[in-house]
Computed example of a mutant assay.
Amino acid sequence: MFSRIWTKKSTNDCSGPIDTLRQVLNHTDAVVIGAGSGLSTSAGFTYDGERFKQYFADFAAKYCIRDMYSGGFYPYSSLEEHWAYWSRYIYINRYQDAPKPVYQGLFSLVKDKDYFVLTTNVDHCFQKAGFDKKRLFYTQGDYGLFQCSEPCCRETFDNESTIRQMVEAQGYQIMPDGSLSVPESTTLKTKIPSELVPYCPHCGRPMSMNLRADDTFAEDEGWHRAAERYREFLRRHEGQNILFLELGVGYNTPVIIKYPFWRMTAKNLNAFYACINQGQAVCPPEIQRQSVCIHGDIGAVIAQL
């Protein structure tokens, strides 16, 4: 349907596109937010650099791991070490708040609108910022959930209590504000006690994270209810003034947010597509007249809106 030649519509001066987006936001009937990892990056959830060194210096020295993402795929020799790494990873990216209030700023823009969120992010930032749980569809899972690694069932399990125990067993103290502290003279452990390793209560196999990486991803009842609510939202607003607001979506999984947003905009002359992205703010020529693309930091643009 779309030409292979994309038109990048961002310029160094974003004032015009931002003004246009502000007007669309003020007059639209509904907003569909499509959020990718770039949104959480803007909020301060970076997976490398100083933040990685702060929490994983011991793993980095031991295994030459350079960022959190690659460390999640390292073939650790034991489940005790695997979950030591992952419990830190989950805690700081799911149970700690993002360093910057980008999600809160976004919520202030749409809270009085009829909105829905479709996201590939798994860090729970939308719900913590005040977004209605029934208006969220986390397509790729949730850092806060375990599932059977087989999986023998499509059930998921809340992991907050277990993750906190794992983190504390490594030597961390969880402070009242949720931050992690290492007591003086404490050497962090890179393994957890064997009794904390999670196993499926049904079949006894090891648990895994509820993250879509292959065909073992468990789409539980909550996932299917959210998918149906999203479909119903789109049916209810078909043909109406609707803003498809894409934030920080790359090209790892464009078929989930980016391409559907383009198609739905093209089919509805009353629809408008807005893309805010650092370096990848583009749209196809077919919807150029119904679009704005803003190259810049999402948090900074939201603040201007």
Rank of each mutant, 00 (worst) to 15 (best):
R229K: 11
R94C: 15
V110W: 02
N12D: 11
Y85C: 14
V31E: 04
R51V: 07
K100Q: 12
N252R: 10
L247N: 07
G141W: 02
G299T: 04
M207P: 02
G36T: 00
L79M: 15
V197M: 02
I163T: 06
F261S: 09
R236D: 14
R229H: 06
Y103V: 01
D297E: 06
N252E: 12
T119E: 08
Y143M: 13
K258M: 14
C14N: 15
C64L: 06
D177N: 14
H202F: 10
N270R: 12
K62V: 05
P254L: 12
E184M: 08
Y115R: 07
Q280I: 10
D97A: 14
K8W: 02
M1K: 06
Q290D: 03
R4W: 04
C125L: 06
K258Q: 15
G248P: 01
K128Q: 13
C283K: 08
M1T: 09
Y138S: 08
A303M: 00
F261P: 07
L234D: 06
Y47H: 13
A300P: 00
F131V: 02
D214M: 01
A213W: 00
G178D: 11
C203Y: 07
Y230R: 08
P284T: 06
Q288V: 14
D215G: 00
I92V: 15
A129D: 07
Y251L: 12
I90M: 05
V249C: 06
K258I: 09
H27S: 07
S108C: 09
K53V: 08
P183R: 08
F146Q: 02
S40N: 04
N210I: 05
E81D: 01
Q280M: 13
V197I: 07
H82K: 15
A84R: 04
V122N: 09
Y172W: 09
D58P: 01
R236F: 10
Y91H: 10
S149C: 12
M207C: 13
R94K: 15
Y74C: 06
F45E: 09
C148E: 10
N26I: 00
G38H: 03
S185D: 13
V110T: 08
Q240D: 12
F107C: 03
F73D: 10
W86G: 09
S108E: 15
L106I: 14
A57N: 12
C125F: 11
N241L: 04
G279C: 03
E286P: 07
G279I: 13
Q54E: 10
S3A: 11
T28C: 08
